[in-house]
C-alpha cells in the first residue's frame, strides 16, 4: 500500500518537475497548469502521510523512525514552501524553482522508502 503510494508520488513529482523545467525552458512563468500539477502531487503526498500514520498505528514501524518522520514532514512541507518561493518571481525562474522543488520531493520520497524499508517490515 505504501509502496503503491510512494511510486505514485514519485511519478507525479517527476512529471510535475519535468513540466516545470519545460516551462522554464520555454520562458513561461508559473501558471494555473503548474499550480494544479503541484496540487495533485501534494494531494498524493498527503494521502501518503495518512497511510503512513495508519500503518504505524497498526503496529509496524520504520527502521529509522526519526529519519522517517523527518522525511515524512519534509515531503509535505517542501511543495507549499516551493510554490510560495516560486510565486515571488513571476518569470521563467519561478517555474524553475517549482521544478527543483518537485524533483526534491521525488528524492525525499525515495529516501522515505529507504529509511522505512531497511526493517523489511
Amino acid at each position: 500500500m505504501i509502496d503503491g503510494l510512494a511510486a505514485a508520488s514519485i511519478a507525479c513529482a517527476l512529471v510535475a518537475g519535468v513540466a516545470c523545467l519545460l516551462q522554464t525552458w520555454r520562458d513561461r512563468a508559473v501558471g494555473v497548469g503548474l499550480l494544479a500539477a503541484a496540487g495533485v502531487v501534494e494531494a498524493v503526498l498527503l494521502a501518503q502521510v495518512i497511510a503512513a500514520i495508519v500503518v504505524v498505528a497498526g503496529g509496524s514501524h520504520a527502521d529509522q523512525p526519526a529519519n522517517f518522520v523527518l522525511y515524512l514532514i519534509a515531503s509535505v512541507v517542501a511543495l507549499p514552501v516551493g510554490v510560495w518561493w516560486s510565486l515571488g518571481d513571476r518569470s521563467r525562474w519561478g517555474s524553475g524553482v517549482l521544478g527543483v522543488a518537485c524533483l526534491a520531493v521525488a528524492i525525499i520520497v525515495v529516501r522515505l522508502g529507504q529509511v522505512w524499508e531497511s526493517t523489511g517490515g
Binding site: 494544479a36 495533485v40 498527503l46 511543495l79 510554490v83 510565486l87
Partner: peptide
C-alpha cells in the same frame, strides 16, 4: 492540462504565501 482544481492545502498556501515577506 487538466483544470480539475484539486482541493489541496497547497492551494491556500499559495495565496497566503506571497503576502508574508521576501
Amino acid at each position: 492540462m487538466d483544470k480539475t482544481t484539486p482541493a489541496t492545502p497547497a492551494t491556500p498556501a499559495v495565496h497566503a504565501g506571497p503576502a508574508v515577506s521576501p
